[in-house]
Design a protein around this nucleic acid. Structure first.
Lengths: 121, 121
DNA sequence: AAATATACATAGCTTTCTTATGCATATGTT
DNA sequence: AACATATGCATAAGAAAGCTATGTATATTT
Protein backbone atom coordinates (compact mmCIF):
# COMPACT_ATOMS: atom_id res chain seq x y z
CA UNK A 1 0.00 0.00 0.00
CA UNK A 2 2.06 2.90 -1.20
CA UNK A 3 -0.52 5.21 -2.74
CA UNK A 4 -3.89 4.68 -1.06
CA UNK A 5 -3.63 4.47 2.69
CA UNK A 6 -6.35 2.64 4.50
CA UNK A 7 -8.82 5.11 5.91
CA UNK A 8 -10.48 2.58 8.10
CA UNK A 9 -9.33 4.30 11.27
CA UNK A 10 -11.60 6.76 12.96
CA UNK A 11 -14.93 5.32 11.94
CA UNK A 12 -18.00 7.20 13.08
CA UNK A 13 -19.73 4.06 14.18
CA UNK A 14 -20.21 5.24 17.74
CA UNK A 15 -23.20 7.35 16.78
CA UNK A 16 -24.99 4.34 15.34
CA UNK A 17 -25.01 2.58 18.67
CA UNK A 18 -28.53 1.46 19.38
CA UNK A 19 -29.61 1.46 15.76
CA UNK A 20 -28.12 -1.85 14.64
CA UNK A 21 -31.14 -4.11 15.07
CA UNK A 22 -33.37 -1.54 13.43
CA UNK A 23 -30.98 -1.21 10.52
CA UNK A 24 -30.93 -4.95 9.95
CA UNK A 25 -34.69 -5.23 10.15
CA UNK A 26 -35.10 -2.37 7.71
CA UNK A 27 -32.79 -3.99 5.16
CA UNK A 28 -34.49 -7.35 5.46
CA UNK A 29 -37.90 -5.77 5.09
CA UNK A 30 -36.82 -4.25 1.80
CA UNK A 31 -34.67 -6.94 0.27
CA UNK A 32 -36.63 -9.87 1.58
CA UNK A 33 -33.73 -12.23 1.91
CA UNK A 34 -30.12 -11.46 2.74
CA UNK A 35 -27.06 -12.99 4.31
CA UNK A 36 -24.79 -11.45 6.90
CA UNK A 37 -21.95 -10.31 4.78
CA UNK A 38 -24.38 -8.83 2.31
CA UNK A 39 -26.21 -6.95 5.05
CA UNK A 40 -23.04 -5.32 6.28
CA UNK A 41 -21.96 -4.25 2.79
CA UNK A 42 -25.38 -2.90 1.96
CA UNK A 43 -25.58 -0.93 5.20
CA UNK A 44 -22.20 0.59 4.50
CA UNK A 45 -23.09 1.48 0.93
CA UNK A 46 -26.35 3.08 2.00
CA UNK A 47 -24.75 5.30 4.61
CA UNK A 48 -22.04 6.80 2.50
CA UNK A 49 -19.47 4.39 3.92
CA UNK A 50 -20.16 5.63 7.42
CA UNK A 51 -21.74 2.62 9.05
CA UNK A 52 -19.21 -0.18 9.21
CA UNK A 53 -20.89 -3.11 10.93
CA UNK A 54 -18.11 -5.34 12.14
CA UNK A 55 -18.47 -9.10 12.24
CA UNK A 56 -18.30 -9.03 16.01
CA UNK A 57 -21.46 -6.92 16.06
CA UNK A 58 -23.19 -8.34 13.06
CA UNK A 59 -23.36 -12.04 13.79
CA UNK A 60 -24.33 -11.79 17.44
CA UNK A 61 -27.01 -9.30 16.44
CA UNK A 62 -28.42 -11.68 13.85
CA UNK A 63 -28.39 -14.53 16.33
CA UNK A 64 -30.23 -12.38 18.77
CA UNK A 65 -32.89 -11.46 16.24
CA UNK A 66 -33.26 -15.12 15.48
CA UNK A 67 -33.57 -16.02 19.16
CA UNK A 68 -36.26 -13.36 19.46
CA UNK A 69 -38.15 -14.99 16.61
CA UNK A 70 -37.94 -11.90 14.43
CA UNK A 71 -35.94 -13.54 11.68
CA UNK A 72 -35.37 -17.06 10.52
CA UNK A 73 -32.31 -18.48 8.81
CA UNK A 74 -31.64 -20.94 6.08
CA UNK A 75 -28.23 -22.18 5.04
CA UNK A 76 -27.41 -22.39 1.39
CA UNK A 77 -24.27 -23.88 -0.09
CA UNK A 78 -22.50 -21.73 -2.65
CA UNK A 79 -19.99 -24.16 -4.08
CA UNK A 80 -18.26 -25.44 -0.97
CA UNK A 81 -19.07 -22.43 1.13
CA UNK A 82 -22.03 -22.04 3.42
CA UNK A 83 -24.13 -18.93 3.31
CA UNK A 84 -26.76 -18.17 5.88
CA UNK A 85 -29.74 -16.36 4.50
CA UNK A 86 -32.08 -14.51 6.80
CA UNK A 87 -35.60 -13.31 6.31
CA UNK A 88 -38.23 -11.73 8.51
CA UNK A 89 -40.78 -13.86 10.26
CA UNK A 90 -44.34 -12.62 10.54
CA UNK A 91 -43.75 -11.00 13.90
CA UNK A 92 -40.44 -9.75 12.55
CA UNK A 93 -42.33 -7.97 9.82
CA UNK A 94 -44.50 -6.16 12.32
CA UNK A 95 -41.50 -5.36 14.48
CA UNK A 96 -39.61 -4.03 11.48
CA UNK A 97 -42.46 -1.69 10.68
CA UNK A 98 -42.47 -0.35 14.23
CA UNK A 99 -38.72 0.03 14.35
CA UNK A 100 -38.62 1.88 11.06
CA UNK A 101 -41.24 4.30 12.29
CA UNK A 102 -39.33 4.76 15.50
CA UNK A 103 -36.09 5.37 13.62
CA UNK A 104 -37.80 7.86 11.36
CA UNK A 105 -39.15 9.80 14.28
CA UNK A 106 -35.76 9.68 15.91
CA UNK A 107 -34.14 11.17 12.84
CA UNK A 108 -36.82 13.83 12.68
CA UNK A 109 -36.21 14.73 16.31
CA UNK A 110 -32.46 14.88 15.91
CA UNK A 111 -32.95 17.14 12.96
CA UNK A 112 -35.20 19.41 14.97
CA UNK A 113 -32.59 19.41 17.66
CA UNK A 114 -29.88 20.42 15.23
CA UNK A 115 -31.90 23.09 13.45
CA UNK A 116 -34.71 24.22 15.73
CA UNK A 117 -35.48 27.21 13.52
CA UNK A 118 -36.13 25.02 10.50
CA UNK A 119 -38.21 22.60 12.51
CA UNK A 120 -41.43 23.23 10.66
CA UNK A 121 -40.01 24.24 7.32
CA UNK B 1 -53.59 13.78 37.66
CA UNK B 2 -56.75 11.80 37.17
CA UNK B 3 -57.15 12.11 33.41
CA UNK B 4 -53.64 12.17 32.01
CA UNK B 5 -51.62 9.12 32.96
CA UNK B 6 -47.87 9.37 33.12
CA UNK B 7 -46.43 8.23 29.80
CA UNK B 8 -42.90 8.09 31.08
CA UNK B 9 -42.58 4.37 30.47
CA UNK B 10 -41.16 3.06 27.24
CA UNK B 11 -38.72 5.84 26.47
CA UNK B 12 -36.93 5.67 23.14
CA UNK B 13 -33.63 6.63 24.66
CA UNK B 14 -31.82 3.60 23.34
CA UNK B 15 -31.50 5.12 19.90
CA UNK B 16 -29.68 8.12 21.31
CA UNK B 17 -26.85 6.00 22.60
CA UNK B 18 -23.58 7.57 21.56
CA UNK B 19 -25.03 11.01 20.98
CA UNK B 20 -25.05 12.31 24.55
CA UNK B 21 -21.74 14.18 24.58
CA UNK B 22 -22.50 15.72 21.22
CA UNK B 23 -25.92 16.80 22.41
CA UNK B 24 -24.46 18.50 25.46
CA UNK B 25 -21.75 20.23 23.48
CA UNK B 26 -24.31 21.45 20.97
CA UNK B 27 -26.52 22.96 23.67
CA UNK B 28 -23.60 24.64 25.38
CA UNK B 29 -22.37 26.06 22.10
CA UNK B 30 -25.74 27.71 21.58
CA UNK B 31 -26.71 28.82 25.04
CA UNK B 32 -23.23 29.65 26.20
CA UNK B 33 -23.78 28.79 29.82
CA UNK B 34 -26.02 26.14 31.31
CA UNK B 35 -26.35 23.92 34.33
CA UNK B 36 -27.05 20.21 34.38
CA UNK B 37 -30.72 20.20 35.19
CA UNK B 38 -31.29 22.88 32.59
CA UNK B 39 -29.42 20.88 29.95
CA UNK B 40 -31.56 17.83 30.47
CA UNK B 41 -34.81 19.79 30.31
CA UNK B 42 -33.74 21.65 27.20
CA UNK B 43 -32.67 18.46 25.45
CA UNK B 44 -36.02 16.90 26.21
CA UNK B 45 -37.94 19.91 25.04
CA UNK B 46 -35.98 20.09 21.81
CA UNK B 47 -36.58 16.46 20.90
CA UNK B 48 -40.30 16.37 21.30
CA UNK B 49 -39.95 14.76 24.73
CA UNK B 50 -38.08 11.84 23.28
CA UNK B 51 -34.64 12.29 24.75
CA UNK B 52 -34.83 11.88 28.49
CA UNK B 53 -31.33 12.30 29.87
CA UNK B 54 -31.36 10.76 33.30
CA UNK B 55 -29.26 12.09 36.11
CA UNK B 56 -27.20 8.93 36.09
CA UNK B 57 -26.12 9.69 32.53
CA UNK B 58 -26.04 13.43 32.72
CA UNK B 59 -23.71 14.13 35.59
CA UNK B 60 -21.07 11.52 34.75
CA UNK B 61 -21.11 12.81 31.17
CA UNK B 62 -20.55 16.38 32.31
CA UNK B 63 -17.75 15.29 34.60
CA UNK B 64 -16.13 13.47 31.73
CA UNK B 65 -16.35 16.49 29.47
CA UNK B 66 -14.76 18.51 32.21
CA UNK B 67 -11.98 15.97 32.69
CA UNK B 68 -11.33 16.14 28.97
CA UNK B 69 -11.00 19.88 29.20
CA UNK B 70 -13.89 20.53 26.87
CA UNK B 71 -16.02 22.34 29.41
CA UNK B 72 -15.36 24.20 32.62
CA UNK B 73 -17.63 24.58 35.57
CA UNK B 74 -18.46 27.30 38.00
CA UNK B 75 -20.64 26.95 41.03
CA UNK B 76 -23.19 29.60 41.74
CA UNK B 77 -25.35 29.83 44.82
CA UNK B 78 -29.05 30.35 44.23
CA UNK B 79 -30.33 31.10 47.67
CA UNK B 80 -29.00 28.20 49.66
CA UNK B 81 -28.75 25.85 46.73
CA UNK B 82 -25.66 25.28 44.61
CA UNK B 83 -25.94 25.32 40.88
CA UNK B 84 -23.09 24.22 38.66
CA UNK B 85 -22.86 26.16 35.45
CA UNK B 86 -20.89 24.80 32.55
CA UNK B 87 -19.45 26.49 29.51
CA UNK B 88 -17.25 25.42 26.65
CA UNK B 89 -13.51 25.93 26.83
CA UNK B 90 -11.63 26.99 23.74
CA UNK B 91 -10.87 23.43 22.72
CA UNK B 92 -14.41 22.54 23.68
CA UNK B 93 -15.65 25.05 21.18
CA UNK B 94 -13.65 23.45 18.40
CA UNK B 95 -14.72 20.01 19.50
CA UNK B 96 -18.36 21.11 19.58
CA UNK B 97 -18.10 22.34 16.02
CA UNK B 98 -16.68 19.01 14.87
CA UNK B 99 -19.26 17.00 16.79
CA UNK B 100 -22.13 19.01 15.40
CA UNK B 101 -20.87 18.46 11.87
CA UNK B 102 -20.49 14.79 12.58
CA UNK B 103 -23.99 14.58 14.02
CA UNK B 104 -25.39 16.42 11.03
CA UNK B 105 -23.74 14.04 8.62
CA UNK B 106 -24.96 11.14 10.68
CA UNK B 107 -28.52 12.36 10.46
CA UNK B 108 -28.15 12.91 6.74
CA UNK B 109 -26.84 9.38 6.30
CA UNK B 110 -29.60 7.85 8.37
CA UNK B 111 -32.11 9.73 6.31
CA UNK B 112 -30.56 8.43 3.11
CA UNK B 113 -30.67 5.00 4.60
CA UNK B 114 -34.34 5.31 5.40
CA UNK B 115 -35.37 6.84 2.06
CA UNK B 116 -32.73 5.97 -0.51
CA UNK B 117 -34.93 7.13 -3.38
CA UNK B 118 -35.26 10.63 -1.93
CA UNK B 119 -31.54 10.83 -1.24
CA UNK B 120 -30.91 13.71 -3.58
CA UNK B 121 -34.32 15.32 -3.45
C1' DA C 1 2.41 -17.50 -4.30
C1' DA C 2 0.63 -14.09 -1.79
C1' DA C 3 -2.76 -10.93 -0.75
C1' DT C 4 -7.33 -9.78 -0.46
C1' DA C 5 -12.23 -10.72 -0.38
C1' DT C 6 -15.89 -13.62 1.01
C1' DA C 7 -18.31 -15.96 4.87
C1' DC C 8 -19.39 -17.47 9.36
C1' DA C 9 -18.53 -17.71 14.51
C1' DT C 10 -17.33 -16.72 19.50
C1' DA C 11 -14.76 -15.08 23.83
C1' DG C 12 -13.27 -11.20 26.31
C1' DC C 13 -13.20 -6.48 26.94
C1' DT C 14 -14.66 -1.57 26.99
C1' DT C 15 -17.80 2.00 26.74
C1' DT C 16 -22.14 3.82 27.52
C1' DC C 17 -26.12 4.19 29.69
C1' DT C 18 -29.79 2.78 33.30
C1' DT C 19 -31.32 1.77 37.83
C1' DA C 20 -31.05 2.62 42.36
C1' DT C 21 -29.77 5.27 46.00
C1' DG C 22 -28.46 9.34 48.72
C1' DC C 23 -28.62 14.18 50.13
C1' DA C 24 -30.69 18.79 50.30
C1' DT C 25 -33.57 22.99 49.19
C1' DA C 26 -37.78 25.11 47.00
C1' DT C 27 -42.38 25.23 45.61
C1' DG C 28 -47.09 23.84 45.22
C1' DT C 29 -51.12 21.38 47.14
C1' DT C 30 -54.41 19.82 50.48
C1' DA D 1 -48.85 21.87 58.89
C1' DA D 2 -48.08 18.00 56.17
C1' DC D 3 -47.24 16.02 51.91
C1' DA D 4 -45.98 15.74 47.22
C1' DT D 5 -43.48 17.37 43.56
C1' DA D 6 -39.83 19.94 41.42
C1' DT D 7 -35.18 21.52 41.52
C1' DG D 8 -30.28 20.32 41.85
C1' DC D 9 -26.15 17.60 42.35
C1' DA D 10 -23.70 13.07 42.98
C1' DT D 11 -22.10 8.12 42.80
C1' DA D 12 -22.19 2.88 42.84
C1' DA D 13 -23.67 -1.24 40.73
C1' DG D 14 -25.33 -3.50 36.96
C1' DA D 15 -27.00 -4.27 32.12
C1' DA D 16 -26.62 -3.81 27.20
C1' DA D 17 -24.42 -2.91 23.08
C1' DG D 18 -20.78 -3.03 20.40
C1' DC D 19 -15.56 -3.61 19.37
C1' DT D 20 -11.20 -6.17 19.19
C1' DA D 21 -9.09 -10.15 18.59
C1' DT D 22 -9.05 -14.60 17.19
C1' DG D 23 -10.27 -18.84 14.68
C1' DT D 24 -11.62 -21.42 10.51
C1' DA D 25 -12.23 -21.96 5.59
C1' DT D 26 -13.09 -21.05 0.57
C1' DA D 27 -12.74 -17.85 -3.57
C1' DT D 28 -10.69 -14.39 -6.24
C1' DT D 29 -7.25 -11.17 -7.69
C1' DT D 30 -2.54 -9.67 -8.34
Amino acid sequence: MTSGPNLNFMSKNHLYKGTLQSVLLKLLSEEGRMYGYELSKKAKAMTNGDLDITEGSLYPALHKLEAQGLVEAEIEMIGKRARKYYRLTESGGREAKDRIEELTEYVRNLQMFLKPNLGNG
